[in-house]
Write a protein that binds this DNA or RNA. Structure first.
Lengths: 338, 338
DNA sequence: ATGAAAGCGCTAACAT
DNA sequence: ATGTTAGCGCTTTCAT
């Protein structure tokens, strides 16, 4: 293993001179710098990042905590993060919380121990308090939320405009003639759920449609909740003419339940999702949904945290990314491509 | 920031005593160990992982390099890796090569700089030589391949039984009456492609069906290759009665091309994929495919590398995971669920 | 412009 | 059973 001392010995210089030269310190003459760079190259010198992190008390690693890496959405976010991070010369440390606060806290602690320069996080479903995140602020480790955040924490965040996305979608449903629109909402505490519900409510209000609490079913983000929520409606003898599901996966569950009850989509019941997952265009019928750009969320979050790491005293900012409505056959009866 | 020295000072002990106690060294009495543990807890001591890595010249971080994090398959693999790694007290450093060898090499170099204990890699499409991986072996950093590997490198690997999966699938196609079976193969150099092709060839041979080179089209792993490959067949006026695509994504492309040429799946042309991606059961018609277990691949790869890191002189091993044939409507005409 | 010395937190080899 | 010392590779401060 080649160190700066080896280079220095070979050249008859002191190792601090080499250190300075390699970091382009003004003390060193250009001539010397060039010579040192050449020898370093020739000797196949690789700086020891760990030693650097140790000395500087800060690494060029950025931590990412997501509920689940395997999830379509988060996988794309991570991919976006990686691109930006990599170009800026950082590396990623990735953990999944499995929607568990304790595990999330442990990950934060590991990241602190590893002197990460910053942490990007989409909090777990269970996370309501920020106690385990405070340590980051105390140690001057930058914190940026993406997608799922804690409202009362003073940190930057990148989110999609869930409210507007939901509003636009439900507005579309009403405009295409639907009057009894149910909403299968996600986990009650999360801001995403709240914002989408809020958009749903406001869109109905705009059209003077009264809000019927029985049409709003809380649940979670998995397929089974789509099935369960629909069965709940059925058991109460409620048949909506449209359902806005909190995400595409829940919509898939709803599809199954609706079909197994012998209803036709969209003739009897229209269905819409949120997320524009890969599956949504392959469903039968293709699902109307709201496109988020997870990759873009990742890129934005990464850009923000790098900026915050590299420049002093930046103010926390909120980046709200636009969504896009994708109208497919699950909400329109009229035409069909094929 | 609390260090072992702070604990030692507080207790009137020497800091090395604290160091030993915290690492459960036999030198220290149980009584002292307990007292030290209690004080450490009380003072909210967090060991400095970076300092440890620096001193030990080895971290508890494991690097993972995949072509693309956002990919369904790799995202699940990573998720599986993370689970095992986490339970063993390691953390993950994740990078994507974007199917680019140079970028892959840079990632390896970064990981070496970061003193990772091991590297898990699925090589890029372009990767044919192992020059950039040799440095790992020289530095005694464990290397384990998963899914995509280099045959001539002496390192453990975890792969799915592509040969058997493909063989079983094509055997099924023949048994269900197909005679002119095309194969849309992946990137020519990769072992996955070769193995699946090999399974295809052997299955045909078993049934005394001659191999027709014109029915084998090389390409890649994306949707567009499915479209392109089918058009290539059409332009040569070749109409197969079944197509075995190297993966599900290519099958999606094939679906589009087949449908746009006015053919019916499976009546005119049966289609089968490989991978059992989420989309495959939602396609119209649902796609017959071979299930791999990416999550299991990840878990196995992680277990192997941890074992190799923690015990000396382990022999490289090859773990071949079984596949499972999922027969759906894209290859059967007779019945239909709905 | 270059060199010397100190020290980051921790571990290991060697005292006591 | 506990303490002492040295040093990992690097950066920073202070000479020369």
């Amino acid at each position: 293993m080649v160190t700066i001392k080896d280079i220095a010995n070979r050249m008859g210089l002191h190792f601090t001179t080499v250190s300075k030269a390699l970091r382009d310190h003004p003390d060193i003459s250009n001539e010397t710098k060039e010579k040192i760079a050449a020898v370093a190259e020739e000797m196949d010198y690789h700086p020891d990042s760990v030693a650097k992190s140790f000395k500087n008390r800060k690494s060029r690693t950025i931590g990412v905590i997501v509920p689940l890496i395997g999830n379509d959405f988060f996988a794309s976010v991570i991919s976006g993060i990686e691109e930006v991070i990599y170009d800026a010369g950082y590396t990623l440390m990735i953990c999944q919380s499995n929607e568990n606060v304790d595990r999330e806290a442990l990950h934060v602690s590991t990241m602190v121990s590893n002197q990460v320069a910053g942490v990007l996080i989409a909090v777990s479903k269970e996370t309501t308090a920020a106690d385990h995140l405070n340590i980051l602020q105390r140690r001057d480790i930058k914190l940026v939320f993406f997608d799922r955040f804690l409202e009362h924490v003073n940190a930057s965040r990148v989110v999609v405009d869930d409210y507007k996305g939901a509003f636009t979608l439900v507005d579309h449903l009403v405009k295409t003639g639907h009057k009894k629109i149910a909403h299968f909402s996600g986990s009650k505490g999360l801001t995403v759920s709240k914002s989408r519900l809020h958009g749903y409510v406001d869109a109905l209000k705009k059209h003077d449609i009264p809000i019927d609490d029985e049409l709003i079913i809380y649940g979670g983000f998995r397929e089974s909740y789509g099935v369960g929520s629909f069965q709940q409606l059925m058991s109460k003898n409620i048949k909506p003419d449209a359902i806005f599901c909190v995400n595409d996966v829940v919509a898939v569950g709803a599809y199954q339940a609706i079909k197994s009850h012998g209803f036709h989509i969209p003739r009897d019941i229209a269905v819409a999702g949120f997320g524009n997952n890969t599956i949504s265009s392959y469903l039968d019928p293709p699902l109307t949904t709201v496109k988020q750009s997870p990759h873009l969320i990742g890129k934005n979050a990464a850009q923000i945290i790098i900026k915050e790491i590299e420049q002093k005293n930046s103010e926390p900012k909120e980046k709200i990314l636009d969504t896009e409505l994708f109208i497919r056959q699950s909400t329109q009866m009229a035409m069909s491509k094929t």
